[in-house]
Simulated scan of single mutants.
Amino acid sequence: MSWIDRALLACGALALVTPVLARDPVISYDFGRPATPQEIALWNIDVRPDGTGLPPGSGTAARGRQVFAENCAACHGENGVDGIKDRLVGGQGTLASGAPVKTVGSYWPYATTLFDYIHRAMPYQAPGSLSNDDTYAVAAYILSLNGIVAADGKLDRESLPNVRMPNRNGFVPDPAFDPAKLFKTK
């Protein structure tokens, strides 16, 4: 059977199943169980720009320097520059230029987003493995390298949302964009 035949067969099967799904969107497969509130809480780790969702803990830029050297420098460079992955430091004042340098310090509008990203996705080889304290520390270190937090700075869930990023007001709506046009019908 060719790949075209398999694709047509799959589309036909989907066409047969779709009316069933429309009538009964909750399908039981007779295995598993609903997640408990405690299990859901383990995955509910998103952090919003206003700091909602930040966990307890704290970290200093000095501790962050150590954690960064052990977990981040191999990809991002010793000081957040010149690594094989994204540059994290510098670029302030370049966004309106012909060669913008988009880094945490120049582009990101909220420091809480930095914590959230590190907490969920870093380090690359073991995402989510840093403790809350070490995540706060790495965020403090990266922000200190960008001159946003003092070199002896400390971050926690009260102070992090108050960090004012240089590009906080840099994301503005496009005046030519009209969301109502997305849903107009003829």
Rank of each mutant, 00 (worst) to 15 (best):
S2E: 09
W3D: 13
W3Y: 11
I4R: 15
R6H: 14
A7T: 14
L9M: 14
V17E: 01
A22S: 11
R23Q: 04
T36P: 12
P37D: 15
I45F: 13
R48S: 08
D50P: 10
G51I: 11
L54P: 07
P55C: 06
G57R: 11
T60I: 03
G64H: 01
G64C: 03
R65M: 01
R65S: 01
A69P: 07
E70P: 08
E70V: 07
N71M: 05
G77W: 12
G77F: 11
D82Q: 15
D86S: 08
R87I: 05
L88M: 12
T94F: 09
T94K: 05
A96C: 09
S97E: 10
V101R: 09
K102H: 14
V104H: 00
V104L: 00
G105M: 02
G105D: 00
S106H: 03
T113W: 01
H119L: 05
M122P: 06
P127N: 13
P127E: 11
G128Q: 11
S129L: 09
N132L: 04
N132Q: 07
D133C: 07
T135D: 04
V138R: 09
Y141L: 02
L143I: 01
L143S: 02
D156G: 03
L160S: 02
L160Y: 04
R164I: 00
R164P: 02
N169R: 09
G170H: 05
F171Y: 14
D174I: 08
D174R: 10
A180R: 13
F183M: 03
T185C: 04
